[in-house]
Computed example of a mutant assay.
Amino acid sequence: MIKFGIVGMGLRGKLFADTILQSHYAELAAVSDAFAASLEAAVERYGVPGYADAAEMMAKEKLDAVVVATPDFLHKEPVIAAARHGLHIMVEKPFSTSVEEALEMEEAVRAAGVKCLIAFENRWSAPFVNVKHAVKSGEVGRVLAINSRLNDTIFVPTKMLKWSQGSSPGWFLLSHSTDMACYLKEQKPVRVYAVGTKQKLAAMGIDTYDSLQTIVTFEDGTHAAFTTSWILPESMPLIVDFKYEIIGEDGALYVDLHDQMVHQAGAVYKHVPTLGTPVNGRLLGPPSHMLHAFIDNIRLDTEPLAGPEEGVINTRLVDAIHRSAECGAPIELA
């Protein structure tokens, strides 16, 4: 059995722990969290050793792999520590919110010779799996344009995340949609121009962007338009509004993850999030499919679908988007 430790036992850490419990090839061996209450709850729930210090967990426990589920800006230390201990790593996206840190992490992973998966979970989302197949098989021809809208309700930066001021809708959301464009096109981004708004959340004492809009140019001369915000009203029928349009030479594809086929009316109107609904107790959402795939990468000695190189490309891109929004000018990507 592949022995896993988890760093960060928030919502995502618990989801990954529950997923590991359903694997025939892996087991949860230890957990780590810097917050005493979260750590105590995780130890009680999963019955495994708990550590306030992730590095201590890696040094003391006989682990094979770790899942790093810390906030966006706190990936570097656990990733590098895991690499130095020779542990395989699945780390939340974005790889880092710093290009310099992302390059350090990439080098540590390469030097250690361990497997590393960056958690771009939409690569395992059923709608996008179908989209990738259609693009790869040539059903729409060469992709000429992509338009993406990925928004969250204001619940996310004000209530769900205690650390939203250290992130942005760019790091938290655009990292998903920009990675998907790179994955579908198999092209690197070379230029960005972005604008952003800081008003509503800043007035609430949260110094981060309300929204960002950007045009990305790829090395084949085509473009993609991305818009993201996390200030939609909480009355929205689903916490996330994700729409994706792929226009090719011979066809087009349209993805709407805001409408997941079931609409419920009652005291409030809502869209039921069916894509992650467990069936017979089995977790079937993209994050769980992704972790099972990573477990297979380890046991079958195969390469993860999104590794450090993709993580660095994404960090460079989202970093450039922020810099462009700040300076008001296009940014060329090295």
Rank of each mutant, 00 (worst) to 15 (best):
residue 96 S to G: 03
residue 258 H to P: 04
residue 106 E to W: 08
residue 72 D to Y: 10
residue 50 G to M: 00
residue 259 D to I: 01
residue 45 R to A: 12
residue 99 V to W: 03
residue 62 K to P: 05
residue 53 D to K: 09
residue 114 V to K: 06
residue 55 A to P: 09
residue 106 E to Y: 10
residue 89 I to D: 06
residue 225 A to H: 12
residue 98 S to Y: 00
residue 8 G to Q: 09
residue 189 P to F: 07
residue 56 E to D: 11
residue 205 G to P: 11
residue 101 E to T: 03
residue 215 I to S: 12
residue 241 D to M: 07
residue 169 P to T: 00
residue 257 L to Y: 07
residue 240 V to N: 14
residue 215 I to M: 13
residue 143 V to I: 02
residue 34 A to N: 10
residue 205 G to S: 05
residue 313 I to R: 15
residue 320 A to C: 04
residue 66 V to N: 13
residue 251 G to L: 00
residue 87 L to A: 01
residue 11 L to R: 14
residue 286 P to T: 02
residue 9 M to A: 04
residue 180 M to G: 04
residue 327 C to A: 13
residue 325 A to R: 06
residue 334 A to R: 13
residue 77 E to C: 02
residue 294 F to Q: 06
residue 317 L to Q: 08
residue 314 N to T: 11
residue 49 P to N: 07
residue 212 L to F: 15
residue 10 G to Q: 08
residue 176 H to G: 03
residue 188 K to Y: 11
residue 20 I to E: 11
residue 297 N to A: 00
residue 136 K to C: 05
residue 231 I to T: 15
residue 4 F to M: 12
residue 87 L to H: 02
residue 278 P to S: 01
residue 330 P to C: 01
residue 155 F to E: 14
residue 204 M to R: 14
residue 234 E to K: 11
residue 18 D to P: 01
residue 63 L to T: 04
residue 295 I to D: 03
residue 9 M to H: 10
residue 179 D to S: 02
residue 5 G to H: 09
residue 143 V to Y: 06
residue 215 I to A: 12
residue 33 D to N: 14
residue 3 K to Q: 12
residue 60 K to Q: 14
residue 26 A to Y: 09
residue 187 Q to N: 12
residue 333 L to Q: 06
residue 208 T to P: 05
residue 300 L to Y: 13
residue 24 H to C: 12
residue 120 F to R: 09
residue 156 V to Q: 10
residue 80 I to S: 05
residue 287 P to E: 03
residue 238 L to V: 04
residue 228 T to L: 04
residue 263 H to A: 13
residue 307 G to Y: 07
residue 179 D to C: 02
residue 2 I to V: 15
residue 203 A to G: 15
residue 300 L to P: 01
residue 11 L to P: 09
residue 45 R to V: 00
residue 26 A to K: 05
residue 188 K to R: 15
residue 318 V to A: 00
residue 90 M to K: 06
residue 113 G to M: 09
residue 106 E to F: 08
residue 163 W to F: 13
residue 291 L to I: 00
residue 9 M to N: 04
residue 222 T to D: 09
residue 99 V to D: 08
residue 210 D to Y: 02
residue 306 A to T: 11
residue 81 A to G: 05
residue 213 Q to T: 11
residue 289 H to N: 14
residue 97 T to S: 07
residue 173 L to I: 11
residue 220 D to K: 06
residue 266 G to P: 10
residue 215 I to N: 11
residue 186 E to G: 05
residue 154 I to S: 12
residue 96 S to L: 01
residue 324 S to V: 04
residue 140 V to C: 01
residue 216 V to R: 08
residue 176 H to Q: 00
residue 73 F to S: 09
residue 77 E to G: 01
residue 48 V to E: 05
residue 132 K to D: 13
residue 91 V to W: 08
residue 28 L to W: 08
residue 12 R to W: 15
residue 225 A to T: 12
residue 152 D to N: 13
residue 73 F to N: 13
residue 153 T to F: 07
residue 324 S to E: 04
residue 112 A to V: 02
residue 203 A to Y: 11
residue 324 S to K: 07
residue 161 L to F: 10
residue 285 G to Q: 09
residue 129 V to N: 07
residue 94 P to R: 02
residue 115 K to M: 05
residue 279 V to G: 02
residue 168 S to N: 01
residue 15 L to D: 08
residue 116 C to M: 15
residue 40 E to V: 00
residue 70 T to Y: 11
residue 218 F to A: 04
residue 252 A to I: 01
residue 162 K to V: 09
